[in-house]
């Protein structure tokens, strides 16, 4: 498959799914096997509390990840100690998460393991940066999530694969549209280098950006209520930075402003967009523009036509339908494995 070369070039990849059972784990496994065959050493982890594998809430187990011999992995100590294969601990991480201590270890033989890694974006960012420095690792893999519940953004990796499956919806149109939406948000333009430097350490509140590129603080804590957004627009010019969630209310209010066509919205990355597609597109149609500070490259879409309830979508048709929406390769995960 062509995208393994790209993954090696970029050095890090997150695999994210539209929802549970959309084939994310299979996709990750496929990538790991290919990289293993190519003699590449990989390190893998998962975003802390996975938005889909809500194991703490619903008590449904998170899927286990197959690990190849020689792979490095980072997970919670209690998962590690219940493993059923040989591995060696390389490091106990200097922070603990809600699930307890975290360890980085190396598999000494093939095995299966539940992964729960760094729980927020900056910790995950450090992990991706530090693993190749500390260990002879070629590629870092992140079992990611696009979800309101996920505190860590998949945009910390250089590249990404999106898993789309019948488990999300049995309606091909819905699947295609949703995929298109993710594709469009991932491809939002990236903010200029100097502006990015000024904004990247601001993770709370809202900021205004003047025509000269200076950052102003209107003193508003969040952009969840229309009144707050209007207050910000009054105090700032047409360029605002929202590090937190981009909601329906935010985009609607911006689109309804007097100079909607001149509005520029800066966000951290595509995963912060929680607005519905129609609101997102209508904001763009009004002439509004959205820039992101951190971007990732979407390498491919993997589809899983099988839903856990046993329904089967037509694989060829589904691949074709999604391929019409995006100009990146679309694969059927089941066929790839075979």
């Amino acid at each position: 498959m062509p995208f393994t070369d790209q993954i090696i070039r970029y050095g890090s990849l997150s695999v994210v799914g539209l929802g549970k059972n959309t084939g994310k784990t299979e996709c990750l496994r496929y990538v790991m096997e290919r990289l293993n065959q190519m003699q590449k050493v990989t390190a893998v982890t998962s975003v802390g509390i996975d938005g889909e594998g809500v194991d703490r809430v619903t008590a449904t187990p998170k899927p286990e990840i197959f690990l190849e011999k020689g792979m490095y992995f980072t997970t919670v100590a209690s998962y590690y100690t219940s493993k059923r294969f040989r591995a060696e601990i390389c490091e106990v991480l200097p922070y603990t998460t809600v699930l307890g201590k975290m360890v980085t270890a190396r598999a000494l033989e093939k095995g299966k393991m539940i992964l729960a890694g760094p729980s927020d974006t900056s910790l995950l960012q450090n992990w991706v940066r530090e693993m190749p420095q500390k260990y002879p690792v070629d590629v870092c893999l992140v079992d990611g999530a696009i979800s309101r519940l996920s505190p860590a953004s998949p945009a910390v990796t250089e590249s990404m694969i999106l898993a789309v499956g019948a488990a999300y919806s049995l309606n091909m149109k819905t699947l295609a549209e949703r995929t298109r939406f993710i594709f469009d948000t991932v491809h939002l333009p990236v903010a200029g280098g100097s502006l990015r430097k000024k904004l990247e350490n601001i993770t709370r509140g809202i900021r205004g950006i003047t025509a000269k590129g200076e950052i102003t603080d209107p003193g508003v804590e969040s952009a969840l209520l229309p009144a707050q957004v209007r207050e910000v627009l009054e105090k700032c010019e047409n360029r605002i930075y929202v590090p937190g969630a981009v909601s329906n209310a935010l985009l609607k209010t911006l689109a309804g402003g007097k100079e909607a066509g001149k509005t520029e919205l800066y966000i951290r990355d595509f995963s912060r967009i929680f607005a519905e597609p129609r609101v997102f597109y209508s904001f763009l149609r009004e002439g509004g523009r959205i820039f992101q500070l951190f971007s990732t490259r979407l390498l491919a879409v993997c589809v899983n036509p099988v839903s856990p309830q046993g329904y089967n979508l037509n694989s060829v048709e589904l691949v074709d339908r999604i391929q019409r929406e995006v100009d990146i390769p679309v694969y059927d995960i089941k066929k790839m494995e075979g």
Binding site: A77, Y80, T81, I89, V92, K101, V103
Partner: peptide
């Protein structure tokens, strides 16, 4: 446990 043994070694 294994992690604690590692901690002592470290």
């Amino acid at each position: 446990d294994e992690v604690e043994l590692f901690e002592i070694k470290y």
